[in-house]
Simulated assay, not measured.
Amino acid sequence: MISTPFTADLVRGAAELEPTSRGVAPHRLPAWVRRQFPDPRLLDMEAQPSGVRLAFTTTASTIELVTHPARVAYRGLDRPRGRIDVIVDGALRLRDELDGGDRVEIDLQTGGSTAHTGPVHTTRVDRLGSESKNVEVWLPHNEVVDLVELRSDAPMSPAARGSRVWVHHGSSISHGSNALAPTEIWPVAVARAVGDVELRNLGLGGSALVDPFLARVIRDAPADAISVKLGINVVNSDAMRLRAFVPAIHGFLDTIRDGHPETPLVLVSPIFCGIHETTPGPGAFDPAALAAGEVRFIATGAPSDAAQGRLTLEVIRDALRTVVDHRADDENLHYLDGRDLYGAADAADHPLPDGLHPDAETHALIGRRFTERVFAPGGPFAR
């Protein structure tokens, strides 16, 4: 078997590949961000390779990818493992559920944690035939992985890139929470449906907080289309009041425009989320659900708090729409109401299982609607 090194031409959607004792670790945020703001949650989220994939052409009949996963588990709660999707000439050939790897098990009742170590995981796909083929190996969106070795029985070459780069930033929903597999998170579903775009997914669970360093990352990134989906994390972390939120959004957009003055840019407000529509955060785990071995979220603020400037999703959407209205001289800035992707009526047929995140079917629904409204003819990202 031939061993192919992991390079930036081969690994797409990552900012950097960090050498480790096992191989390389893909990072979605550059090292300067990780040094400047080493927040444990942010570091865990950016190291989960949501939207990151290997893309190559080969005549190989057999391909093996060796990875070493690492994850956080919660005692008493059954959470699905990450998966690796192998796409051959546009069709799903293998969906491989991870096993082994390291895990940190956390007790949500006591806050205590226990570390466990485990072996590497090998993803193998064979009987591919000897003809030339395009292969994409999408890494798990919800577990950290070291890339250890890529083996095949014929040489590999990096695949041709899409004609456009789409940079997207958002919260855990954009990261892929509750999606079944890496090609089923809604930004990836959009990129695959459109077909000619290279996705860089900056969806970061719990970390879409209008952080200035994220705006600088987007500013400095190659991009032919940019979307930023902001609001839910600001509410469920109770991070800002209205007075601070509006100028922060303006500053975020100003920084992006420093590097991309005319690139189509879509500002997306939150999808419908009943617990926070009229009730501020902070959000919290529902203790009754935890006692029953389930995860659900609740809002702990009071609706009356909005009068003091505390943020709800209704307030956020009005503020974001007004920001875009006040920047009317920017002809390439567009507003998309998140309820056009998932609204109150959808909640009846597709309720959010944990009160906050969409399930696999709803990720597909959001992806279809984003494609129709943004990439289709007449949309901001149309050809």
Rank of each mutant, 00 (worst) to 15 (best):
A291N: 12
F252N: 00
G259Q: 04
V266Y: 10
P247M: 08
H250T: 08
T278A: 13
E294K: 15
F285W: 15
G251P: 01
V234P: 00
I249G: 00
V246N: 05
A288Q: 14
A244E: 15
E277H: 10
D254G: 07
D286I: 08
N233D: 14
A289D: 04
G251V: 01
I249C: 06
V268F: 04
L290G: 03
V246K: 10
V266G: 03
L253M: 07
G274T: 06
F272G: 03
P287N: 06
L265D: 03
L290T: 08
L267G: 01
D238S: 14
G274Q: 07
E294I: 09
E294N: 10
P247R: 13
E277A: 10
A244L: 06
D238K: 07
G251D: 15
D238M: 09
L242E: 15
H250E: 15
P287F: 08
L267K: 01
L265Q: 07
F252T: 02
P280D: 13
G274V: 03
N233T: 11
P280W: 13
D286A: 09
G251Y: 13
P287K: 11
T278P: 03
H276K: 03
F245V: 02
R243M: 08
E294V: 10
L265V: 08
H276I: 09
E294Y: 06
A291K: 10
L242M: 14
M240F: 10
L267S: 07
P261M: 07
D238G: 10
F252A: 01
A288I: 02
V234T: 09
L267I: 11
G251T: 13
E277V: 10
L265N: 01
A244H: 10
I256N: 02
G251W: 13
